[in-house]
Computed example of a mutant assay.
Amino acid sequence: MPYLRREQLAGMGIHYMYYSLDYFLQSQAELGFKTIEMWCGLPHFILDDYGYQDTQELKKKVESYGLHIGVFTPECAMYSYLICAHDPLAQKHSMGYYTNGIKAAGEVGAKIMLTNCCGGDWKEDPERTFDRAVQVLRKLAPVAEDNGVTLAVETVRPEESRVVITLPELKRLLDAVDHPNVKAALDVTAMGVAGETMQEWFETLGSDIRHMHFPDGRPYGHLIWGDGLHPLEDYLQLLNDYHYEGYLGQEITDGRYFDDPKEADRKNIAAFEPYFK
């Protein structure tokens, strides 16, 4: 049977957006999580292009619940700050936002900050959008290096972007940026929607996969495990086979879980219990 270290499973607060940060943290601790992927959306953490709230206060609070921030994830799909923003003013503000995100990540001790290539005018030539993503990531990479952070870039669904929605595109992006602090994140939902397999990802990117968003799906939907069709045991076996030691962020975004996120997490972590080492 495949195994998983409990510390690798990273609870995420996006489906707690209508609840306080304290309620999210208390729920994670009570349910047996040890690590969180810190979703930086309101009301949990204030981050914008002008600044961010006290990171030492955040770190102290998280640790008071016996938890650790493994990954820092600025909101990078729903809000105004997007890597591929095409408007010059939006580009300026986005650069400030992600720069601040990297600095905050370093201050709380997170070694990984997740992002993607959302944004861009969908009537624009996709090559221009892609080139802009390369240029932005090249500018952010030295900031990440200075703060001890690796940017993990995920693919997304075609409803979210016109670029970097497949494994070959992500490989091309990483080769173009060519920086040790810009690596890959595997989102199993985007992977499934693209008709790709986890084995293909590992064969293509190997140890450059530094983080995963690891929810269940059909393949659409970021669901709790058991509500989708993904083969959990098979996936975990592949993680063992390819010696993946990174985090598995539980990015649960389906609205059905927003009313009682703690109960959703209770069911979700129960699916992993047989595999914890």
Rank of each mutant, 00 (worst) to 15 (best):
Met1Asn: 08
Met1Gln: 14
Leu4Gly: 04
Tyr16Phe: 08
Tyr16Arg: 09
Met17Gly: 10
Met17Arg: 08
Ser20Thr: 07
Phe24Trp: 01
Phe24His: 01
Leu25Thr: 08
Ser27Thr: 14
Gly32Trp: 11
Gly32Glu: 12
Phe33Asn: 06
Phe33Gly: 08
Lys34Leu: 15
His44Gly: 15
Asp49Gln: 10
Tyr50Val: 11
Gly51Trp: 13
Tyr52Cys: 14
Asp54Trp: 08
Lys59Glu: 13
Lys60Trp: 12
Glu63Asn: 13
Gly66Thr: 13
Gly66Asn: 11
Leu67Ser: 06
Glu75Gly: 01
Cys84Trp: 02
His86Lys: 09
Leu89Gly: 12
Met95Ser: 10
Gly96His: 02
Gly96Pro: 06
Gly101Gln: 01
Ile102Ala: 00
Ile102Gln: 00
Ala104Arg: 02
Ile112Asp: 13
Leu114Asp: 06
Gly120Ile: 05
Gly120Cys: 13
Lys123Cys: 09
Arg128Val: 11
Phe130Gln: 09
Val143Tyr: 00
Glu145Val: 04
Asn147Arg: 01
Gly148Asn: 05
Thr150Ala: 08
Ala152Trp: 15
Glu154Thr: 00
Thr155Ser: 01
Arg162Val: 00
Thr166Asn: 05
Leu167Thr: 02
Pro168Gly: 06
Glu169Pro: 09
Glu169Met: 06
Lys171Phe: 10
Lys171Gly: 05
Asp175Ala: 11
Asp175Leu: 08
Ala176Met: 06
Ala176Pro: 06
Asn181Glu: 09
Ala184Glu: 00
Asp187Gln: 03
Asp187Arg: 00
Asp187Ile: 01
Glu196Leu: 14
Thr197Asn: 08
Thr197Phe: 13
Glu200Asn: 14
Trp201His: 04
Glu203Gln: 14
Thr204Asn: 15
Thr204Tyr: 14
His211Ile: 03
Phe214Gly: 00
Pro215His: 07
Pro219His: 10
Gly221Asp: 01
Asp227Val: 12
Gly228Arg: 03
Gly228Thr: 03
His230Asn: 10
Glu233Gln: 13
Glu233Thr: 10
Asp234Arg: 12
Leu236Thr: 05
Gln237Asp: 11
Gly246Ser: 13
Leu248Met: 10
Ile252Gly: 04
Gly255Tyr: 02
Gly255Cys: 07
Arg256His: 07
Lys262Gly: 12
Glu263Met: 11
Ala264Tyr: 02
Ile269Leu: 09
Phe272Ile: 14
Pro274Ile: 15
Tyr275Glu: 09
Phe276Val: 08
Phe276Asn: 10
